[in-house]
Every structure is written in C-alpha cells, then in structure tokens.
C-alpha cells in the first residue's frame, strides 16, 4: 500500500554525477567474443581515483548547491551502495565531513543491491515527514563490478545521484507517495568478501526485475487512482537498455515518457544511482506542474515506486549545478586494457 508522510515532503535539491570515462560495449565484446549483441552501447567507468565516496561527494555538493541549503542544516547523510570502499567504516561519515555537515548529523550506509539509494530516499521521506528532520540527504552511488567476460561486465557501471529531501513547501518536486514491494528472490547476489556477483540469468527478468517493478508500480498507480498517461515522465531501474523499455510497455508507459531518463544505453547500469540519475536527467528538463513516475529496483529483490509533481521552484534551481547532460557529454573512451588496469582486474602480485 502507498506510504505518505503526514507532513508533505519533496526534493529540495538534486545532484547527478557520472565519471568522465566510458568503455564501448563492442570493446568488451572484442575481448570476450560477444557475438550475441550488446545490452548497452557503452558504460561509464570510474577514474582510478574515484569510488562511491568521491562520487557521492560530488553529487551531494550539486544537490546542496541547487537547494542553497547550508551543510550544517542537514540532519542525515545517507549513502546507498553495494560498493562502499570499506567493509567497516561508513561512507556516510566521510561524505558528511567533506560536505561540512559534521558533527551534528546522522550518517549511515545502506545496502540493497541497486535499490540502496532508494531505500535511503524512502527513509528520508519518513524522517522529514515526521518532523524529526528538516533536511536529509539520500544518495545512491556505485562503482559496480562484473566478472571479466560475464554478461554483467557489459553494464556494471558507475555514477551517483543525491536527493536532498525537505519540506514540500521548499521543494522542486513534491513526492506524492511511495510504495515498496519486496520478496526474498535470489536473482543476483554477492557473498561477503568476494569481488564479483553471481546472477540468475533468465531468472533475473522474471520473476525478479519485472515482477518487483510491476508490483510496486501498479500498486502506487492504483492507490493514487492514477494511470500511466497521467504522468509526463517515467523512469525505471535500468540494468540494460531493454529491461526498462519492456517494463514501461508492460505497465502502459510510452517510449516518449521514459526517453529523457533512459541513460543506460550510454552509461550502462549505475546500480544504486541508475534510476535516481534518470530522475535527475528528467528534473533537468521538466516544467512546473509536470508529474514524474519513478520505479527503482534492487536484486534480492524489491522495487520502490514514487510519484512526483514538479513545482515552480525547479527552473531557477536546476541552473545552479551541472546538468546531467554535461556529465554525459564529457565522455572519454578507454580501451579494455586501461579499463582492466583501473578496475583492478590485473593480477599484480
């Protein structure tokens, strides 16, 4: 059922970050004989000095810059990721320190495969919606790893998106409600202390991705009494190009509705950042009054759906930080050798 705080909340500021580097899917196919076609055109690759923490910091700085909210007014800095640089030592504390939000702030790391960022988002809605907090920063960020030669290697990408959640009256987009749909489904997992995840091949689509996405989305549409055509835009988790297109079609959304937020063909699957980066790209172009339907997905498995309505505050605020398109545009391609070196795939000793 739909969840909605008593005190209306919204996105006060948002920030995207995509690393500069890309590798073309055909370059990966060149090494691994990918004769069956590629799931994306290219994917983002973090530079050798980047990780979930550094990308979170930049996305968060963009969100704060848009909101004009001083960092010491944050009540929480929450980072959702499956690639926290430390197993034990929070990413959130370091990000909070870099932002200048310390020490009177909650900081935490969230994990739910590709849905870790949206977990933080839902929790932030509760925190602000209850009146406990005025501003909470929810970040999804990942530097995802795929085993060399595995199908995941074509898509496992990097990026970050930060959403500053605050009172609806200050928002660029009000969040009208959310649903969450989870089941224990082993479509994709990574055991502790292993480098690469394992995935369930066809199982990944049904029942996992499609089932959960439909479950959350249909319930939210139902509870809102809305239909897909009521929304100007929609964005889904995007593990490749085809899955979000397919689930959109299944639900009744059009290719036009999802086009501005569909980044996976160019940057691959940014995991915890994927759907939220798509939302950032939509906020970059949306007009006051536009409605946006967001559905995230995380393996294991579950989806969160959100309905948003853009306010008059958006057009001015979005100019205060780089647009998602600016990060997309600065692409610099590397070959598989450089990619292998940077991503720690060379055995050095």
């Amino acid at each position: 059922m739909m969840m909605k705080p008593e005190r209306p909340v919204g996105i006060v500021g948002y920030g995207a970050y995509i690393p500069r580097f890309r590798i073309a899917a055909r370059e990966i196919a060149r090494i691994w004989d990918g004769a069956g076609g590629t799931p994306v055109d290219s994917k983002s690759v973090p530079g050798p000095d980047e990780d979930t923490i550094t990308m979170s910091i930049e996305a968060a700085r963009n969100a704060l810059a848009r909101a004009h909210v001083a960092p010491d007014r944050l009540s929480a800095v929450w980072v959702g990721s499956e690639s926290h640089p430390y197993s034990v030592k929070p990413s959130g504390t370091l990000v909070a320190e870099a932002l200048g939000a310390t020490p009177w702030v909650s900081a935490a790391d969230w994990e739910f495969a590709c849905k870790a960022g949206s977990e933080a988002l839902t929790a932030a809605m509760g925190m602000v919606g209850s009146g406990m907090a005025q501003y909470v920063l929810a970040i999804g960020a990942d530097t995802a790893q795929g085993r060399p030669g595995d199908a995941l290697e074509y898509t496992a990408a990097a990026g970050a998106a930060a959403l500053l959640i605050g009172p609806a009256a200050e928002a660029v987009a009000v969040i009208e409600g959310t649903t969450s749909y989870v089941t224990d489904t082993p479509d994709f997992f990574r055991r502790a202390d292993t480098a690469y995840p394992v995935h369930g091949h066809r199982f990944t689509g049904e029942p996992a991705y499609f089932g959960a996405s439909r479950g959350a989305a249909e319930r939210l549409l139902h509870d809102l009494g809305a239909k897909p055509s009521d929304f100007a835009y929609a964005v889904f988790h995007q593990p490749n190009t085809r899955f979000p297109q397919t689930v959109a079609r299944q639900l009744g959304f059009t290719p036009q509705q999802i086009a501005p937020g569909l980044l996976s063909p160019k940057i691959g699957n940014a995991y915890s950042a994927a759907a939220l980066l798509g939302l950032c790209a939509i906020l970059d172009v949306a007009k006051p009054g536009d409605t946006i339907f967001v559905t995230t997905y995380g393996s294991g498995a579950g989806s969160d759906a959100y309905a948003l309505r853009v306010t008059d505050a958006l057009p001015e605020r979005r100019e205060r930080a780089p647009l998602t398109a600016a990060y997309l545009a600065r692409e610099a391609f590397v070959d598989y050798a450089v990619y292998a070196k940077w991503r720690g795939k060379l055995v050095m000793e």
Binding site: G47, P48, D49, E50, D51, T54, I57, E58, P85, A98
Partner: peptide, 17 residues
C-alpha cells in the same frame, strides 16, 4: 576542486582522500 582518492595505503591501511 573535486575530492578524490589521493593514496591507498593498502589492505591494512586507510584510503587517503
């Protein structure tokens, strides 16, 4: 300015940002 990894002090050390 961007905040990045300056040095990795290895598996028993810090990542210096």
């Amino acid at each position: 300015m961007v905040t990045r990894r300056l040095r990795d002090l290895g598996p028993t050390g810090l990542i210096v940002y």
